[in-house]
Amino acid sequence: MTINNEIQISFDDIENVELNTPNTISISMEDINAYEPKQVDAVINPEDIPKEEEKVELNCLLCHYPILEGESWVKCNKCGSSYHTDCWRVKNSCIQRDCNSHRVIPQDPIT
């Protein structure tokens, strides 16, 4: 049986491994059926899980002030930068480095 590079098996856990070429190995079906992967316990810090009620604050790339609830705002169609609609009208192009897009996607007011 040939196993590709996507499967990771510790050779310390398997007997009778034959190396065929640099990219393939042969393992007996008996060893494969007997193999039991080691369980890894994931550690999740509860503080890293975002709370639903927390709102992400968006800042306008031009004026650097937050885009507040109910304010009209747009997002650059190329890089995704956020602007107050009035700030976008000042330049009519994205000021993000190496972007310079002249098109935006209108966004619903933040609630």
Rank of each mutant, 00 (worst) to 15 (best):
I25R: 10
L58D: 03
N4W: 00
N100R: 05
V74Y: 02
E69R: 08
K55A: 06
P109F: 03
E57V: 12
S72W: 04
H102I: 13
P106G: 05
L61C: 07
L58T: 01
C87H: 03
I14A: 00
S81C: 12
I32E: 09
D108H: 09
N100F: 11
N4T: 09
I44N: 09
E36N: 11
I7Q: 01
E71V: 02
E69W: 07
C94M: 07
I49T: 01
D86I: 08
K78E: 14
P50D: 12
R97W: 13
V17L: 06
F11R: 13
S72Y: 05
L68I: 03
C76E: 01
I32F: 15
I27R: 07
P106A: 07
L68N: 10
M29H: 10
H102G: 12
S93N: 15
I32N: 03
A42K: 07
K38F: 01
D12A: 12
H84F: 06
N77Y: 13
Q96W: 09
I3A: 07
Y83S: 03
N59Y: 13
S72A: 14
N16Q: 12
I95P: 04
K55G: 02
D12H: 06
N77W: 05
S81L: 08
N45W: 01
H84D: 06
H84N: 08
P22Q: 14
R97A: 14
E53G: 09
E53P: 03
V74R: 02
F11D: 14
P106L: 05
D13H: 00
S26G: 11
E54W: 06
K51A: 14
Q39G: 04
D13G: 00
G70V: 00
D13R: 04
D108Y: 09
C60H: 04
I14F: 03
L58S: 02
E36I: 15
S28K: 08
H102Q: 13
D86V: 07
K75L: 12
D31Q: 15
D13S: 04
N4L: 06
V17S: 08
Q96C: 10
D98W: 09
D48V: 00
A42W: 09
S101E: 10
Q8S: 07
W88C: 09
W88Y: 07
N92P: 05
K78S: 15
G70W: 05
I9V: 15
M29G: 06
P22C: 08
P22D: 15
P106R: 06
A34F: 04
I67M: 00
